[in-house]
Design a protein around this nucleic acid. Structure first.
Length: 648
DNA sequence: CTAGCGTCA
DNA sequence: GAAGTGACGCTAG
């Protein structure tokens, strides 16, 4: 096929998805993305002789590939050759060594995987290094990601817009868009190079595009019936609580309305008059009595209503966001695939939406269900959104968690002897240890809530929480909080020195860097406004640690992805990334082998020779597995079962 | 304290 | 009336 040969020989390929409404990825974002109908590829050979006025050089050419499945009954006849042609071009795009450029390349890769899910394995996208100006733009200035292609172009292109949009045919607009995309990519690449961001871009972020595309193309099974049952259960529970609230209030009112609740609590029941010793929070703009959680907690001993409202809100939150919310993401299917965003977090972490997989409750919710069956009047049921996610038949979920990554990185970055000692001679889990010290109980008595509490306290202090905020978290007076803060920073003196060093550096150069060279510029670090300046200082410190942790987690994802992709037998797939935790779906028979591989791959990141990363602390990875995301139990891996040869 | 997304008034 | 906003609550460190 001539065209295929031409595409293979082209010096560069510039791609965009085309949607059924005629728009492309270069047009401003649609609210609800229309379905894809094809792919437009510009094959560039004349890299020097095109001008803004005549973007298409004499040796450049354009091809439109229809993405559409031929019905099975028609396959023996006409259109199958075209379908195969498109697939072959896609395969070539995935494996070519010449540059391929696509704005929002992840969407392109995912679309390819979805259209050819029968005969295009997700492993095939592993080696693909498609360039993406959206990613480059974000790396250059992660705090201000561009909202659309035009935005990005305006921000970086030296030349003014090529042709005025009015009166020009849509086709020529798209063509000149693709040409500008090519030049924009060149421009961004040179900027990355001059900022020292090239390695981070080409070795990490570009690989992430494939990892995320493969992750998005996977279908996560959800127990839809159970989800519907819990939706109904929570619905009846809310009705019960509403009735209880009306009874407690002595009147009907809309429990979801804070205005009406305020009237009941403070004008009818006058609860604020009965707690003059406590300070009740006020609403910010109107200085009215607040009905926030903090206020209701203060009032809960005076009257039954606040407690009922608190429980109502809790149930409502779970139902609307995590039960009905997930149901609405499923449409008529019985699976979901989240959207994973690479360019929305300043620190380099990734985020998820529809649904936000990273925010599903960790703890199940206990519901007491009143039912009028003889013998038992009350039944306690636990509602756990995570338990709704199920591996496919014959597969198991496996989670691998980097234990205390940020704190370990802080130990490394600060070289604090005390913090290093905790991690190099671990008698116990750090947060468990601290919790047992603070609460005066033995380590075995520390509950998971205690541990969680200790964790919040530690991170709050190291990221610069003020006295007021810290007293809220610790549950002590402001004065005690201050004392705690002082003694903490005295115990870990080098941590304090690291914080000061980082802020100073940010002051001098205007930006800070993570261990792998990720960069955040903080213009506000020199603001004349004290509050604004202090916030920038905290952001600088947080960026160095959080950003470095993100670097490690991404490296882990990529290495594991490459190991599995290049293995003939391994089939484990990444389901989700919970920042420091990777969740995989693994064939039952491969669980042990894969667990050992994941653990050793992740822990081996203590030393990354070619990047000059040598952490002063060991990395610890905890692995767990289960037949639902809600019921994972720890897996103990013998230390050296099979040391993998790390690819990079 | 720092990062997000989803829901609501 | 619809669309935008800030507070809150869930997550992760």
């Amino acid at each position: 096929m001539q065209m295929l040969e031409k595409a293979g020989k082209a010096k560069a390929l510039v791609l965009t998805l085309v949607y059924q409404d005629g728009t492309t990825q270069l047009d401003p974002e649609q609210k609800l993305g229309p379905p894809v109908c094809g792919l437009l590829a510009l094959m560039k050979n004349d890299l020097d002789c095109s001008t803004p006025e005549d973007p298409l050089g004499p040796n450049d050419s354009l091809v439109y590939l229809k993405l559409e499945h031929t019905p099975a009954w028609a396959q023996q006849h006409a259109h199958t050759s075209q379908e195969h042609f498109t697939r072959d071009v896609l395969l070539q795009v995935l494996s070519r060594s010449q540059p391929v450029v696509c704005y929002k390349a992840k969407d392109f890769l995912r679309t390819a995987l979805q259209f050819y899910r029968r005969d295009l394995s997700w492993k095939r996208v592993a080696g693909c290094l498609i360039q993406d100006p959206q990613v480059s733009g974000w790396l250059l200035d992660p705090a201000n990601p561009s909202s659309c292609y035009q935005d990005l172009l305006n921000k970086h292109s030296k030349r003014p817009p090529t042709t005025s949009a009015l009166g020009v045919k849509k086709v020529s607009r798209v063509i000149s868009g693709l040409c500008s995309l090519f030049w924009l990519n060149m421009e961004l690449c040179s900027k990355l190079q001059s900022q020292g961001l090239w390695e981070l871009y080409s070795d990490m972020e570009l690989s992430m595009i494939s990892v995320l595309a493969a992750m998005e193309s996977h279908r996560i099974h959800v127990d839809k019936d159970a989800l519907k049952r819990t939706s109904d259960l929570l619905g009846t529970k809310m009705k019960q609580l509403e009735q209880e609230a009306h009874r407690a209030a002595g009147q009907m009112f809309l429990v979801t309305s804070n205005t009406q609740l305020r009237t009941v609590l403070f004008e009818k029941l006058c609860l604020h008059e009965r707690c003059e010793n406590k300070k009740l929070p006020k609403t910010v703009n109107k200085q009215q009595q607040s009905t926030s959680e903090a206020a209701l907690l203060q009032l809960q001993d005076l009257h039954p209503l606040p407690k009922i409202i608190l429980e109502y809100r809790q149930v409502h939150k779970i139902k609307s966001t995590f039960v009905d919310g997930i149901l609405s993401c499923m449409m008529s299917k019985n699976y979901i695939s989240s959207t994973w965003c690479q360019t929305s977090v300043v620190t380099g972490r990734i985020s998820a939406k529809h649904p936000n997989f990273q925010a599903l409750p960790r703890q199940p919710l206990q519901i007491t269900k009143k039912q009028y069956i003889q013998g038992k009047e009350e039944e306690v049921v636990t509602v756990h959104p995570r338990a709704m996610f199920i591996p496919q038949e014959g597969w198991t979920f496996l989670a691998a968690d980097f234990c205390q990554v940020e704190l370990r990185l802080l130990a490394h970055l600060s070289a604090d002897p005390e913090l290093l000692r905790i991690f190099t001679h671990p008698q116990a889990d750090v947060f468990t240890m601290l919790a047992s010290q603070w609460k005066g109980v033995s380590e075995v008595e520390v509950t998971s809530e205690d541990r969680e509490h200790a964790k919040r306290v530690v991170y709050s202090v190291v990221y610069g929480a003020g006295r007021e905020r810290l007293s809220g978290i610790l549950g002590v007076s402001g004065e005690q909080a201050s004392r705690f803060q002082d003694s903490f920073l005295q115990t870990y003196r080098e941590v304090q020195a690291f914080i000061q060093r980082t802020v100073q550096k940010c002051h001098n150069q205007g930006y800070v860097l993570s261990i792998m060279g990720r960069r955040r510029t903080l213009p506000n670090i020199n603001s004349p406004n004290w509050g604004v300046r202090m916030q920038a200082a905290r952001q600088a410190v947080n960026f160095v640690v959080q950003g470095s942790a993100a670097d490690l987690c991404k490296t882990a994802m990529i290495r594991i992805f490459n190991l599995v992709s290049s293995s003939g037998s391994l089939s484990a797939r990444l389901i989700a990334q919970l920042h420091d935790e990777l969740l995989y779906e693994v064939e039952d028979s491969q669980v042990e082998r894969f667990a050992a591989l994941v653990k050793s791959t992740m822990e081996s990141l203590q030393h990354i020779d070619h990047l000059g990363v040598h952490l002063k602390v060991p990395l610890k990875v905890a692995v767990s597995s289960g037949k639902s995301w809600g019921s994972m139990s720890e897996l103990h891996i013998p230390p050296s079962l099979s040391p993998p040869s790390p690819l990079h």
